[in-house]
Every structure is written in structure tokens, then in C-alpha cells.
């Protein structure tokens, strides 16, 4: 059981949870993830560690409420507990010898881009950050990023905040202006990571993407998280989750990630009553975590 210490809405769809887990907080490094199961009936879902504090003994996750599990998470408040939390899983991001980095976050992916930027910046690396959102209302973590990078660029699809355009527009502009980097880290929706990789490729800029495929155990057993990288099968939980963005088979990744989408919609419908009941119980101040 892991207790939620803080819950904060970052934008209308993204929520931050700070969870007590001294063991994981002590060991976590940027790029790693946890797997959680909200309650006995729940799925195990992987979520990248967005921040960690070994003194407070907490790890922070940020999630977008899309599937049943994240909707259930949304019903929990500080003081409530999550049944199972396991981690840190996956390999830390390899950032040795990096002098100048550009970190690119898209939407909820900014949550995961943040610890990367922070870790690099505090290690004395020049870090440019580009974060992109659909519109002004969805912008989050702006202040946190500002404190943890050299330059921050914000783009919105509709131009309602920052610069109008996609993260790749800004990235290309920087690269064309002669900015030199030895590493790009892209985290966000799969199409966005693919476009970032396509953008950096002509410049020969080493680009890491952080993948979040379907996963069950996260320890090298189930094989669900396999992705094709440079024509060979890799497993995100033990070989990743970071891979060379220029070598990932994105088409395969997208179809495999979408495999349960119809079911999730159907399941959300089936379980709507249960969610409603949980929600009612939450309103009444009753037990939420049965």
C-alpha cells in the first residue's frame, strides 16, 4: 500500500500525485517508471516517474485521465492509498558526457520531460526545453521548467499561448539557427516523438525517445512491451524505456498501443456504474479504496 501525500490538478486533464514510497524514492533516476494497481480489480499500468524526493521519501507521477485506471486514480485524494506500487523499473536515461541538450515535451509527456531537464540542468548541462500543448488552457509545469533549464520555449497548436505551431517547428528553427546539441530527448505522444526524430535526423542529432508500450509485469517476463528497434525485438521494461528515436518502428508501436482502445471504451461504459459508485462514496467521505 502506498499513501498519496499530494494531489494537484496541473491542467483540466493532467493531475499530479505525490506518493509515499521511501524505497522507490531512494533508488529512482530520471527515465525510470513505476507500475501501479489502484485496487484489487484494477489493471497494472506503467507510469513514468515525473519527480522524486529521497528526503521526503516520495515519488511523483503525472497522468492524463483517459482510461479506466486513471479515472479511478482521479477519485483518490491525499491521504488515500494505492494498493500496489512497484518500481523503479526500466533503465535510467543515459546522459553521460552530454554538454548541450534539447528536451522536447508534448502534452502530458511534459511531465516526463521535466525530470530529464531538471537532472541535466542541475548537472551543469546547457538545456533548452521546448514544450508544446494544444492550447493555453492545457499548459502546465511552466514555472517548474523555467527554474530547471537554460531556455524555455512554449508552443501551442492554436497560438493561444507562446509561439503558434508544433514543437518540431520550434526545434527546426533552433537547429537551422545553428544551435548545437549533442542530445535530444523527446517525450510525448508517439506521432510527436516520430516527428521530432524525423526533424533531428538530417542534422545527425542523437535523439532519445521514451516509450510507454502496453506492459504487465515490467520486469522482463511477459513480453507485452516489445518494440521493434532497428529491425530487432526489444523490450521496453528491460532494454528501455528509452530508445534511439531514429531506429524505432513507430507504426508497429502505434497499432500495438491501440490494441485495447475499443475495449477500453467499452470497459469504461461497463464500469461507469462502478466509477459512479466510487465517486459517490468519495463524496460521502466513505472508503474509496476497496
Amino acid at each position: 500500500m502506498a499513501r498519496i501525500v499530494t494531489k494537484r490538478r496541473l491542467n483540466p486533464t493532467v493531475t499530479l500525485l505525490e506518493i509515499e514510497s521511501p524505497m522507490i524514492a531512494h533508488k529512482a533516476k530520471p527515465g525510470q517508471f513505476v507500475i501501479l494497481r489502484v485496487d484489487e480489480l484494477g489493471e497494472r499500468i506503467p507510469l513514468t516517474i515525473a519527480d522524486f524526493d529521497s528526503i521526503r521519501g516520495t515519488v511523483t507521477i503525472m497522468y492524463q485521465s483517459v482510461g479506466l485506471t486513471t479515472k479511478k486514480l482521479d477519485l483518490l485524494e491525499s491521504g488515500d492509498t494505492i494498493l500496489d506500487l512497484v518500481g523503479p523499473l526500466g533503465n535510467p536515461t543515459e546522459v553521460d558526457h552530454v554538454k548541450r541538450a534539447v528536451v522536447i515535451g508534448g502534452g502530458v509527456g511534459c511531465a516526463i520531460a521535466f525530470p530529464q531537464a531538471k537532472f541535466l540542468y542541475r548537472a551543469g548541462v546547457h538545456v533548452d526545453v521546448i514544450i508544446g500543448f494544444r492550447n493555453k488552457d492545457l499548459v502546465f509545469l511552466e514555472g517548474s521548467f523555467r527554474k530547471n533549464c537554460t531556455n524555455l520555449y512554449i508552443t501551442t497548436d492554436d497560438g493561444s499561448y507562446g509561439e503558434k505551431g508544433f514543437v518540431t517547428t520550434k526545434l527546426k528553427e533552433l537547429l537551422d539557427a545553428g544551435e548545437q546539441y549533442d542530445l535530444a530527448i523527446a517525450i510525448g505522444p508517439v506521432p510527436m516523438m516520430r516527428f521530432v526524430a524525423e526533424t533531428t535526423k538530417p542534422y545527425g542529432l542523437h535523439t532519445l525517445v521514451s516509450l510507454n508500450p502496453v506492459m504487465v509485469d515490467g520486469t522482463g517476463m511477459c513480453g507485452g512491451c516489445r518494440v521493434k528497434v532497428d529491425g530487432t525485438v526489444k523490450f521496453a521494461c528491460v532494454d528501455g524505456p528509452d530508445f534511439d528515436g531514429h531506429l524505432v518502428d513507430y507504426d508497429e508501436l502505434m497499432t500495438r498501443n491501440a490494441v485495447y482502445r475499443d475495449q477500453e471504451t467499452a470497459a469504461a461504459e461497463v464500469h461507469r456504474c462502478r466509477l459512479q459508485a466510487l465517486s459517490d462514496a468519495a463524496m460521502m467521505g466513505g472508503a474509496r479504496n476497496g
Binding site: 517476463m221 511477459c222 513480453g223 507485452g224 516489445r226 521493434k228 525485438v233
Partner: peptide, 20 residues
């Protein structure tokens, strides 16, 4: 980790390892 055959189409949705 489960073994695969390295045949074409093994990465398609709907292909499971028995472990998973």
C-alpha cells in the same frame, strides 16, 4: 523473456506471447 520466431507480422496487434 518469451522467445519469438522472428517471422513477419509478429509485431502485429493480436500477437501475444504465452507469458503475456
Amino acid at each position: 523473456l518469451p522467445k519469438f520466431m522472428n517471422i513477419s507480422g509478429e509485431g502485429l496487434a493480436g500477437v501475444y506471447s504465452a507469458n503475456e
